[in-house]
């Protein structure tokens, strides 16, 4: 097996705020092979988006700062690339789709032009050729009556349509990697399904790799082969999607899965939806022990004294938890 397409190694990102230094991402490792889809899951503020923005060098500095690590893409360290060389990777080899289709498109430029721009800047197409290709892509993402819509502005489109435009814009240059940061969060459920199936279709056709960032485990289950769960800036569990859903190890992952609403089995009494008690700790704090200790139902003394490292749970599944070493604690405290 050759080296992965994208390899994030020990990435740490800090933000310098008046309240102190926020360690938004703490020594995160992600490896993604060509053509693979992995999901990065976690609740808001856990560092998923920051990780993805760091890949494209889009963390504004100040206040942000890459405090350590490296991001290897196709053999190049993205963090060491400067100016134009990084710019030529953005939008051409790595594309990104953002969460808010309402605000992520420029309100004063026609959508055709916005989709065509990467083609002009990266592939040297003339405006006319680029618009022609843009129209083809908009057609591929199933925007009806494309020709008439090339000169439409974002405010004339619905949210779902705008996200389709975003997808077309990300896809035009045929990227090797697409980072989708909560691509369906802002959309209606019916539109969500359409957008997801569209993305799956495009991915299969183009063979690109996909890094899907979401807090929606349902989306993950449908689309990805491997999942990484993030909590408070760290990856707390990672593994194949079926393993992780069937046999989650980390108490946080278990909590996440339990807090998903599902239609109860007939005959069983309906139960209240589970939640994970407490909230995400402030990342300005200095952590000594496990970051999840305050919310974990199984916390024991070691959890508060020393931070656990990612450790193999079984073949292809790792977790950051002391229970791996002292499994008996789970039954004691439960």
């Amino acid at each position: 097996m050759t080296s992965p397409l994208l390899e994030i190694l020990d990435l740490s990102v800090h933000f310098h705020t008046p309240e102190g230094i926020v360690c938004a991402v703490d020594r995160v490792n992600i490896a993604l092979n060509s053509g693979e889809t992995i999901g990065l899951v976690g609740e808001s503020g856990c560092g998923k988006s920051v990780t993805s923005l760091a890949v494209l060098g889009l963390i504004s500095s100040p206040p942000g700062r890459i405090a350590g690590g490296s991001i290897l893409f196709d053999g190049r360290n993205l963090l060491a690339l400067e100016g134009d060389r990084l710019r030529r990777i953005r939008g051409r080899e790595i594309s990104m789709i953002f969460q808010e289709p309402m605000t992520s498109l420029n309100p004063v430029l026609p959508i055709g032009r916005q989709v065509a721009e990467p083609l002009m800047v990266h592939k040297g197409f003339t405006k006319k050729e680029a618009l022609e290709l843009a129209a083809e892509w908009l057609d591929q993402v199933k925007i009806p009556a494309v020709r008439r819509r090339l000169n439409d502005y974002p405010h004339q489109l619905s949210g779902g349509m705008r996200q389709r435009v975003m997808i077309a814009m990300a896809m035009v240059c045929g990227p090797k990697l697409l980072i989708a940061d909560e691509p369906t969060t802002a959309l209606d459920v019916t539109i969500q399904a359409q957008i997801l199936s569209l993305m799956v279709g495009l991915k299969e056709k183009s063979g690109m790799a996909l890094l899907l960032i979401t807090h929606d485990l349902g989306v993950v289950a449908q689309m990805v082969s491997r999942v990484m769960v993030m909590y408070a800036g760290q990856i707390v569990e990672a593994g194949g999607v079926s393993d992780l859903f069937d046999r989650p190890f980390h108490p946080y992952t278990q909590g996440l899965l339990r807090s998903m609403p599902r239609l109860g089995d007939p005959g069983k009494k309906r139960k209240r939806l589970n939640e994970i008690a407490g909230s995400v700790p402030l990342l300005t704090e200095r952590f000594i022990g496990c970051r999840f200790a305050d919310r974990c139902p199984y916390t024991f003394d070691l959890c508060r004294l020393q931070a656990p490292e990612l450790t193999d749970v079984r073949e292809g599944q790792v977790a950051r938890c002391w229970l791996i070493f002292q499994p008996e604690k789970r039954s004691l405290n439960a």
Binding site: L56, L58, R87, R90, G91, F98, T103, S104, L105, V121
Partner: peptide, 15 residues
Amino acid sequence: DYVRTAWAKGLRERT
């Protein structure tokens, strides 16, 4: 957000 999108597309700074 749309300025971030523009950077993410790899456009030149002056664009």
